[in-house]
Design a binder for these strands. Sequence first.
RNA 1: GUGGAUAUAGCUCAACUCGGUAGAGCACCAGAUUGUGGUUCUGGCUGUUGCGGGUUCAAAUCCCGUUAUCCACCCCA
Length: 418
Amino acid sequence: MSSPLQSVQGMSDIAAPDVRLWQRLEEIARATLARYGFEELRTPIVEFESVFTRSIGSTTDVVQKEMYVFEKGGRRLALRPEGTAGVMRYAAGLGPMETAGARWFYIGPMFRSERPQAGRRRQFHQCGVECLEPPSPLVDAEILALQVDLLRAWGLGECEVRLSTRGAGADAARVAEGLRDALAPREAELCEDCRRRINENVLRVLDCKQPACRAVVETLPEPTSFMDETSRTYLAQVAEHLDDLQVKHVRDPLLVRGLDYYEHTVWEITNSALGAQNAVAGGGRYRMELGGRELTGVGFAIGLERVVSVLQTLGRAEELLVPGAPLVWLVGLGDAAQRQNLSLMQSLRTAGLTCRMATGGSMKSQMRAANKAGAAWAVIRGDDELAGGVAALKNMETGEQANVPLAELAGKLTGAQK
RNA sequence: GUGGAUAUAGCUCAACUCGGUAGAGCACCAGAUUGUGGUUCUGGCUGUUGCGGGUUCAAAUCCCGUUAUCCACCCCA
């Protein structure tokens, strides 16, 4: 029986101290993305189901078995399983002039009903970008370089960029047909799944891990060999620009991306610090039709849980955190002092200080609380101090203590903070 | 969705194999001549053994179910 105290499977709370790392990662992301000219776009978490089925593809696993779908007021709604579809739904409602040079980014939760494991949650978080500028190898390279730049800014170590192309226009159909023809005589050698994939989604066969299937795949012609010259040239230019930008990458002709809307350049970034789910990020160029408008763009998504996981494995999470402001702890002896400390605490906060107090307990227990909270200063007041219009200010690190006139207290503390 | 492992105090774990109503460390709280934290010493508190059912005189322990967690497959970030 599920307890009302448990969170839903695969959906976890992010509490302190971890949440501080998340905040820092988001802060770094916003600063980095701003330098590339991206504006944040906050789209709803719930969309009409069709927004996803039409763009991601109704035969993909993400849509078929992983999407949270429900009905409300006779409408089929879904929790977003990824970010691009919602952004494109927004873009499709704008005029061509407004989308022409659009650069948007998003950070937020996504939902896929998969079995949780290392690096996989049912509610997970992605940071992604969408760039709707006219297709160009220059833009693709820039976006990929941005992604690598961001991963570096977060402090991830070695990441491997695998690059490929889906081909443009009719190429996708030609590749599928070419692969089917090549596979047809060898169907008997393939696993059950792959025999099904030949018709449903032939690219998936390339991705199969079964030894028998791999053996067959290795003898196949490269998918790019079925493509038009322009697709191959486009990929070569992207690779050249990446070299110019000193972004290391490897060609991986077998790279398959799961969503239907990709065309042209696609890539995936993996990190060896992760377990089986070693993809930390992915991206590519895409095209989709929504509401009678055709939209093309290039974008990426980064799995934040996986970034956090890499940083923790590498032991680099700690160094990302910036220390908080010094804490001032007010200690009061007796009801009168406690009451006046409440007001004093507020005025210190108005002066910009970070303050707390305990509402009860002996002086000893209040001092213990101050120490436990990591306070830098203790402001101590009892009857003597109240009568003298002073407070005893104690440096919790050195143990030094001196009486300070109330009027000078805030100035002294803010001065000590520098 | 499939498979394997796991679930005991706030945390990390012991007791389970060979049933006899749960222990340790850390943490927490309080004291150590009455207004001072961190170290030390002394004392104290803590559990529907995940949940539900079954077998038994007796279940943390054996059996079934269920929920969650971890890991892998599938797929993806």
